[in-house]
Amino acid sequence: MASETSLNADIEDGVRRRDFINIAAVSFAGVGAATVVLPLVNQMNPSADVLALSSTEIDISAIQPGQAIKTSWRKQPVFVRNLVPAEIEAAKKVPLSDLRDPQTIDERTKPGKENWLITLGVCTHLGCVPLGAAEGEPRGDFGGYFCPCHGSHYDTAARIRKGPAPKNLEVPPYDFTSDTVVTIG
């Protein structure tokens, strides 16, 4: 009650100026608290040493046609497959309209190096590692990779053909530093 009477007693300008100071102080506190939250959130992002591991060199000279190797980039599995001509043909024959995530094999390989299929070994469904890179593993109904977790089948261009996965296996950024060395990342 006391504050109400004093409010009425004050001239209107005075009241506004007084309120403004309180609002300004509280606003400053709010802005300050929000600013402090930024580093506390940002600390969960990858640290400098994790980011520094962003490129990996792979020697592909020992991979025979028809074989694949499993390596890793940014702590994720990477499949490097040396496709045989029949596999490339099979991939080219599939009409894009049949694909859940339409992409040609040319979009997924480098020009002149169509036999090198380099993808992440991370199923686009829920992140399991599909089978098919190592000798003797099941390669699914389409001769590419098969994810045993929930039964996603990938074709010879590692495109999703059957099962719950929504996307093709991801092609990481990479370059041929020479005929036998690939730099991923």
Binding site: P39, L40, N42, Q43, N45, S47, A48, D49, V50
Partner: peptide, 13 residues
């Protein structure tokens, strides 16, 4: 030292 050097804002925290 990893916190001090590599973690984002780690030195501050």
């Amino acid at each position: 030292e990893h916190i001090m050097r590599d973690v984002n804002a780690g030195w501050f925290i």
